[in-house]
Design a protein around this nucleic acid. Structure first.
Lengths: 140, 140
DNA sequence: TAAAACAATGCAATACAATTGCATGCCAGC
DNA sequence: GCTGGCATGCAATTGTATTGCATTGTTTTA
């Protein structure tokens, strides 16, 4: 069977043609993409369907959303540990102010933070802005 | 002299009536506010002027913007260490999924994160989502 | 197999935040 | 008091996110 379809079924997502294409496209990305970037990168797709596809993916733990401060929501593939019950990929995200790309840094985990007593943490997001490896080299 | 005006001048912001009112309002808040919340909380003010006022405040290091993942940008007063050169208040922000309020936790500093070699960090934002003290108590 | 049930898709339309343009108003310095 | 520059307010635009609804496609069931 098609490995893409298998990946969808693994997350209990009905593997329609559209979803397979979107998944395929997402897997080829090195950076997190906004809905618009996704739309532009694919052949004549309806934005709304794309929106709902991504949302389905997100709900089933296949992609995660990243708010990098650029104003638009971006999406990237999850690690395998994510599922319907929640997203468990507590890695940081890096937004390069030069190339405007947002990347997951899966090797860098979000450190524990101590909250005031009584507070309950459910989810943590850490965004670092700066220059990525390529851009930093290019400038200096 | 009016302490509010003084605070504005301290950050090299011309203390107009509008700005004094906005600053006064901001200082009374315990939570970070969105532009719309700000607009509603004040007497018949023009949204655009408010937008530009907040932007001016932000540029001069008087308020900082927070993207808490709710989709809208929120603003809160800065610590004294911020100025035109940048925002240096590296505290975390807490978004309560129950009361939908975003608070600064100035006592909790953002821990250092190790980036891949070649990466340069310029700014870091850490958002924790969960239940704040009040809501956590209310539920249990 | 045919019909019914349900999910997915595509188009239209809406809601709303963010932003810009432009005309007017206000204040400071000459 | 005139002039220049910044501040303000209104109108209008952009762009993202989101919903409604009709249609299509797929799966289940009689």
């Amino acid at each position: 069977m098609n490995p893409l379809e298998a990946k969808l079924k693994e997350k209990s997502i009905a593997p329609t043609a559209m979803r397979v294409v979107v998944l395929d496209f997402l897997l080829k990305q090195s950076a997190a993409l906004s809905l618009t970037e996704l739309e532009l990168g694919m052949h004549r797709t309806d934005r709304v369907t794309l929106y709902r596809t991504i949302r389905t993916f997100e709900e089933h733990g296949l992609v995660h959303r990243i708010e990098d401060g650029s104003g638009v929501t971006k999406f990237a593939m999850c690690q395998t540990s994510c599922n319907v019950d929640g997203h468990h990929d507590l890695h940081i995200h890096f937004y390069c102010t030069q190339c405007k790309e947002t990347h997951c840094l899966p090797k860098t985990h979000i450190p524990e933070v101590s909250l005031p007593s009584g507070y309950l943490a459910l989810d943590t997001q850490l965004i670092v802005k700066g220059l990525c490896g390529s851009c930093n080299v290019a400038i200096t």
